[in-house]
Design a protein around this nucleic acid. Structure first.
Lengths: 218, 218
DNA sequence: ACAAATTTTTAGATTTGTCTAAAATTAATT
DNA sequence: AATTAATTTTAGACAAATCTAAAAATTTGT
């Protein structure tokens, strides 16, 4: 597998999660910042290799092999992210770019040893689950902060948007994974929330709340 | 810099160390297991980028920029080797292949943090020196075991041949960096050596001795 | 349902890095 | 010094991955 093929597989995986639909050529092109015609070319190659199911004009989906491949790349990406934060003191907004490179390194021994060094972490620095060697992982029970009613709350366990911009904003406002968050009031007018976070009161916009996951209430 | 360009620069650097001569196209092709015509093509590209000095039919040498580039790649390669051995329990014959991939990862912060994690090592697992951030490094005073006279010795500090085959042979015979080696007798007939290594007596061929470095006698 | 808009694919070109085969240059040998 | 041998370069071709521009298929809107 070339680096480029791996990137396409990964993108198709991420787009495939959302809806159960086939993934559109244009969606892939947009996310990868490339042209639809390039996507079509690559899809054909991936189809030859039995990594995707493809019928002209009908979008694309991963085969079992493609799915397994995607999970392996994601496993590597997320393990490297943990490594960068835990061992090299990277902040959570700095890890993505480097992990994008490291995820393509080919060595089973390397990744298994890394897993061991990190004590087999189950989640990456953004709260996303890390697939195990066989591609298995359990999506943690969680819900968006914007979805819970007033007077409930929970521990912050992940972010939906993991862009550097959003993560830096959270840092600046002292919001991090592990914080205990409780919704005090929801503003009718613009949907902004008054919350209590680790004892401290603050107000956040609806957009912020809709990108923060808290552990689901049982 | 593309991966391929980096590999050429690295190869030219290694070949350039040996003699002070310009490096021959054929030598590069042989070491990289590619064709001379491909080498010529690439040399032209590197020349355009001011990484090598090149005159047709006259061989090639690194510019200052090329040299700096080479040292940076070698720094990364050797730091990753230390990481693999120290943190991930790789053996010294397993590190090269993976380090060949890792050396191309682009992130100054990554490599500086790695350097710190490893406590700024000065030598890699084969005893080769690790250049610092500015490309500076001191070649350790050392000599080949095959060059020292009877009854002298020293600590084993490096290997000349770092192929997996040779390293595995050393493992099998209990020879490792840090061992104290003394030459007891040199066989006239085939140049093989009777040595004492960490108290234990053994015989090694001339070829073996000419690939083991010991710390130079003052 | 049919025209318009959108999406997707094809066709042909480009860049990088490689190759083979042939030509040019340099080195070696007698 | 002239011929042979070895090395190096050129010329032309190819695969991977991309692009632009145009054609084909699908979806949308009225």
């Amino acid at each position: 597998m070339t680096r480029s093929e791996e990137n396409y597989i990964k993108t198709i995986f991420h787009l495939g999660r959302k809806g159960t639909q086939e993934v559109a050529t244009n969606a892939i092109a947009e996310l990868m910042e490339t042209k639809p015609s390039s996507v079509t070319d690559m899809i054909k190659r991936l189809s030859e290799k039995d990594l995707v199911n493809y019928k002209r004009y009908q979008g694309v989906s991963l085969t079992d092999l493609g799915n397994k491949t995607a999970l392996n790349i994601i496993r590597k990406h997320r393990l490297w992210e943990v490594f960068l934060v835990e061992k090299l003191d990277f902040s959570w907004d700095e890890v993505h770019e480097v992990a994008e490179q490291l995820e393509h390194i080919k060595s089973d021994k390397l990744i298994d040893s890394l897993d061991r060094l990190l004590a087999f972490p189950k989640f990456d620095p953004h709260g996303d689950p890390i697939p195990d060697k066989n591609g298995g992982f359990k999506e943690r029970d969680r819900e968006l902060l914007s979805e819970v009613p007033v007077n409930t709350g929970g521990v912050c366990v992940g972010v939906k948007d993991s862009s550097a911009t959003f993560l830096k904003f959270l840092d600046k406002n002292g919001i991090a994974l592990g914080n205990r968050i409780k919704v005090i009031e929801i503003e009718e007018f613009d949907g902004s929330l008054n919350i209590e976070i680790d004892g401290r009161k603050m107000q956040i916009s609806h957009v912020i709340a809709s990108n923060l996951y808290i552990k689901a209430r049982e």
